[in-house]
Design a protein around this nucleic acid. Sequence first.
DNA 1: GCGACAG
DNA 2: ATCTTGTCGC
Length: 239
Amino acid sequence: MQIQIPESWPKTAAEAIALQKALAPEVITQDQLPDPIRLVAGVDAGYEEAGQTTRAAVVVLSFPDLAPVDEALVRCPTTFPYVPGLLSFREVPAVLEALAQLKTEPDIILCDGQGIAHPRRLGIASHLGVICDRPTIGVAKSRLIGTHAELPPEKGAWVPLMDKGDRIGAVLRSRTNTRPLYISTGHKISLETALDLVLRCTPKYRLPETTRYSDRLASSGTRQSALQQVQQGDLFNQK
DNA sequence: GCGACAG
DNA sequence: ATCTTGTCGC
């Protein structure tokens, strides 16, 4: 995948916040994506050596089949601490390196974390989307900010996530009787289209297949060796 | 001042 | 995120 990697990154929290405020206006919350969608990518990050090394994994799946067609895994020195609200400065540098190694051009990228459902409307999915100038969706497993009404227990149900009068995203039930997902526009996609796409990437489990594949790739070689996984009969989807 | 707080 | 075994429920 062809992308421009920034030459420098903020060094302090103050600089990072200033950059978020400068980039937030660049986010596009309307549909501006390929039609039809043929390739969807999932990105995820993990850490090693007490956080000194960051691993970034990307997996590209065909759509709507959801069969893996491309992937990349990189390790980079960690350069920014985890600070709620500044997650992208910790993970995006490594994620960009991984994306640059893809042989394919995904039509959209699903990220672990918020899109515009963020204090300054520039969560990791939006930040990555603006940098790559590509459609992205924020798929978070928990809430960063915002309030919402009660959510029905059936798969497919969703309610808007609000903050200061703005609809910043949605709380989506991706599986019946299971904790919801926090979905928000990353870049170049509307919330409605994002919800539809996330559901179409989530045929069976709580998390989209894109996230499950990238999580697994990012974890391989850390939690346990590939051999151990095989010995446990953990051949994915059969686990 | 106190509590919340993506990964 | 990561450290970690078994266990409760659909």
